[in-house]
C-alpha cells in the first residue's frame, strides 16, 4: 500500500508494466551512473574544501588545488581549541533548534490564519509579512542592534533566536501558505462540525497534512540559520555564546587567512547539518502517508 504512494510523480517509469527486464535494469544502472557522475562533478567544490581541511595553511596558499602530500589533523585541533568550536557547536545547535521550532509552529499558524481567513485583513497581513523579504540585512542593522541593546540581549544567545525566528518568518509563511492553499478544506470543516477548536484542528488536521512542507521549511532554515554570520557576529560576537561561523571566520585577517583552519572548522560544522538533513528527508517520505493524498 505504502509502496504505491512513493512512486508518485510524472517522470517515474511506469511501475508494474513490463516487469524487471534486464534491459530496464541496465538502463537504470546507466542512468544511475550518469546521475552519480553529474552529482560528483556538482559537489566537487565541496569535496575540495574537505580536502583542504587536511592540509597546512602554507600548503593551501602555495597550491590551493594540488593533491595533498600528507594528510594532517592539526587544522582540526587548532580549529577545535583555538576556535573554541565545541562550545560554538552547542550554541549553534540550541539557536538553530529553537529558531526552527518557532518557524514551524508560528509560521504554520500564521499561514493558516492568512489562507483560511481569506479576508482583506489576512491579505494585508500577508503583504506585511512579505515586506520582510524585501529589506536587506545591512539596512536594518543599526535599529536592531539598538533594540537588542536596550533589551540587554547583546551577548545573549536569545537575541539570535529572536532575530532568526523573526527574519525567516516571511519565507516559512510563504512556503506554508502555498501548500495550504492546495489542501482540501473538507477535513478541517468536518473537524469543526465535530466541535473541535482551532488549535485542535491545527494539531490534528493541518499539522499532519502540512508535514512535507514542514520538512522543507526545516531543511532550508537549518542551513540558513547555521551559516548566518552577518548579524550573529554583531549580536553574540566576542561572547561565550558565539555561533560556529562567528568563531570560524576569526581566521580571516586583513591580508591573510588561515584557510586550513577555516575549512577544518567548516568540515566539523557541516556534519550536524548533514545529519539533520538526512533525518528530515526520511521524514519527508514517512510524512507522505499522512499527507493530503485523497
Amino acid at each position: 500500500m505504502s509502496a504505491i504512494s512513493v512512486w508518485a510523480g510524472g517522470a517515474v517509469p511506469a511501475r508494474g508494466r513490463g516487469g524487471h527486464s534486464i534491459q530496464r535494469r541496465v538502463g537504470t544502472l546507466v542512468g544511475r551512473a550518469g546521475l552519480a557522475i553529474a552529482t560528483v562533478a556538482f559537489v566537487s567544490p565541496v569535496l575540495l574544501s574537505v580536502e583542504m581541511s587536511f592540509r597546512s595553511n602554507t600548503a593551501i596558499n602555495v597550491a590551493p588545488l594540488a593533491w595533498p602530500k600528507s594528510l594532517s589533523l592539526s587544522n582540526f585541533t587548532t580549529a577545535w581549541s583555538a576556535g573554541g568550536l565545541g562550545q560554538a557547536l552547542l550554541w549553534s545547535a540550541v539557536i538553530a533548534v529553537v529558531s526552527v521550532m518557532w518557524l514551524t509552529v508560528a509560521g504554520q499558524v500564521l499561514a493558516y490564519y492568512i489562507v483560511r481567513r481569506g479576508n482583506r485583513l489576512a491579505s494585508v497581513a500577508l503583504l506585511y509579512v512579505m515586506a520582510g523579504l524585501a529589506f536587506p540585512a545591512p539596512s536594518r542593522l543599526l535599529p536592531l542592534y539598538e533594540l537588542m541593546l536596550s533589551l540587554h540581549l547583546i551577548g545573549n544567545p536569545i537575541s539570535v533566536m529572536l532575530f532568526q525566528g523573526a527574519t525567516l518568518t516571511p519565507l516559512s509563511v510563504l512556503i506554508y501558505r502555498s501548500f495550504l492553499q492546495r489542501m482540501p478544506i473538507e477535513y478541517e470543516d468536518a473537524a469543526y462540525v465535530d466541535g473541535a477548536g482551532h488549535l485542535q484542528v491545527l494539531r490534528h488536521v493541518v499539522v499532519p497534512m502540512l508535514w512535507p512542507s514542514s520538512v522543507a521549511v526545516a531543511s532550508l532554515k537549518i542551513g540558513m540559520i547555521w551559516n548566518d554570520f552577518f548579524t550573529p557576529l554583531l549580536l553574540v560576537g566576542g561572547s561565550t555564546y558565539a555561533t560556529v561561523p562567528v568563531k570560524i571566520y576569526t581566521f580571516v585577517g586583513q591580508y591573510t587567512a588561515q584557510w586550513g583552519d577555516i575549512f577544518a572548522g567548516l568540515t566539523l560544522a557541516v556534519i550536524p547539518v548533514i545529519i539533520v538533513f538526512i533525518l528530515l528527508q526520511r521524514h519527508l517520505v514517512e510524512g507522505l502517508g499522512a499527507g493530503l493524498k485523497g
Partner: peptide, 13 residues
C-alpha cells in the same frame, strides 16, 4: 508570528 516579526524585522526596517 506577527508579533515577533513586527518587533525584530518591521520595526528596524
Amino acid at each position: 508570528g506577527l508579533g515577533l516579526y513586527s518587533v525584530f524585522v518591521a520595526y528596524p526596517a
